[in-house]
Simulated assay, not measured.
Amino acid sequence: MSSQLFAPLTLGKTELKNRIVMAPMTRNRATNNVPNEMMAVYYGQRAEAGLIITEGTSPSPNGLGYPRIPGCFNAEQAAGWKLVTEAVHAKGGKIFLQIMHTGRVSHPDNLPAGGRVLAPSAVEMSQTLMYVDGKDQQSIPLPTPMTIGDITDAVAEYANCAQLAIDAGFDGVELHAANGYLLEQFLHPGSNKRDDQFGGNLENRLRFVRNVIEAVVARIGGDRVGIRVSPYGVFNETGAFDDVDATHVRLAEICNESGLVYLHVVDHEGMGAPPVPEEIKTKLRKTFKGILIQSGNYDAVKAGVDIEVGKGELVAFGRPFISNPDLVSRFRGARQLQLPEQETFYTPGPVGYIDYPVLPV
């Protein structure tokens, strides 16, 4: 196994002790959308990772589309997240908050009072259901198209969320522009049917994401901001489109212009999605000047090889971190991994969350 996997790396203002990233994973354990002590235990248990990226966290009451996901848009939520950052830092770890506005991937019953299901355009999600506590799976309603005022407010919400994250002790933030959530909804012509400055041609479809990037960078600095993308991803009714390569290469250029510290590329082939072509991964590698995070069905050996040959500087692991809090130690010792229990991925409570055992030292 390559020693590069365990080598330190400087990520903007943050010194990482290894190249292993804990990928963002929704776990649905927040209480009334507020992070809690159990979440602090969960993240603290996994602080061996060079970098932890949290589960998707909403910058707005309108972005809390799933049940029990956390927000970071008020003081109570920021105080809850401070429990998490303190637990991770106490064990020598580093942690970024993933900012995720669900946009049209939502149900009104999962939103607080006054929350709205917003999207670039009124495009139906016809193949996707949304779980609601006490009501099981529900059809997703037609979203409300965002006005220019809504867009302006949303940009400000991202910036405010980033500031609250830094105030809560996070080392940085990741903007979630992947998997069919709000930022990608603007990028994708299937969900963005606008005919104003935020829709139509490539530059217009990128405008909202650009505005969010620039606002967040202005607030906390580009060396504390990364972004996640999923070209060719099919999650939440997205999929390939005519200028998908050009869109993501141009987005990488915008990230360069704004000084973003990393680009995180998603490949869900291991979860049954179509493979992401190597061509677009190579284009993004050549275009983006910062740190590249690769993710998708990696094991320790493949991760080490891809770091050695320069495909990326960091590699993210998702489900292995759920069932192996000590994943880094297991990789280092070539020890067997525990398999996760999928039925407890999204259930409330500690079972399948903070009760996976670690190996004796």
Rank of each mutant, 00 (worst) to 15 (best):
A168M: 01
V209K: 04
L11N: 08
E257S: 11
K302G: 11
E157L: 05
R332Q: 15
L260I: 04
Y356F: 02
V117N: 06
T57E: 13
A23Q: 15
N236D: 13
F208D: 11
N256S: 05
A79M: 09
G93K: 00
G239Q: 04
G199N: 10
S191V: 01
G226E: 12
L284N: 09
V229N: 04
G333Y: 01
N74F: 00
P24D: 10
T147Q: 04
V225I: 07
F317N: 13
P350V: 02
P275M: 04
P61V: 01
R46M: 03
F321Q: 10
Q45N: 07
D223R: 04
A23M: 12
R285P: 10
Y353E: 13
G50R: 00
E48G: 12
E257F: 00
G239L: 06
P108N: 01
Y356T: 09
Y298F: 09
S126C: 05
A7P: 12
A316K: 01
V173C: 09
D167C: 07
Y66E: 15
I166M: 15
G190L: 05
A87H: 03
S126D: 12
L339F: 08
A154L: 15
H264P: 13
V249Y: 08
I20Y: 03
G65C: 08
Y356G: 11
L111K: 06
Y346E: 08
I53Q: 13
V234F: 05
S2I: 02
Q163C: 08
L339W: 06
N201A: 05
R27D: 14
R224T: 08
I354S: 14
A156I: 02
H176M: 12
L118I: 07
E203W: 09
A90L: 09
E308P: 07
R19T: 03
R46S: 01
A159L: 06
E313K: 04
R219H: 05
L187F: 12
A47N: 14
I293M: 03
I307E: 14
S258F: 06
V209T: 15
V234D: 13
M38I: 05
P348C: 02
D153H: 10
F208G: 11
N110C: 02
Q45E: 15
F345G: 10
L182F: 03
V309P: 05
E278Y: 07
P274F: 00
N236R: 05
G56W: 01
I291Y: 02
G103S: 10
P61C: 02
G349V: 03
G333Q: 15
V41L: 13
A177Q: 03
I227R: 03
P231S: 02
D242Q: 12
I166K: 11
M38W: 10
R335V: 07
K135W: 09
R285A: 01
Y356C: 08
S60Y: 00
F331Y: 15
T238R: 11
N32Q: 15
V132Y: 02
I213V: 13
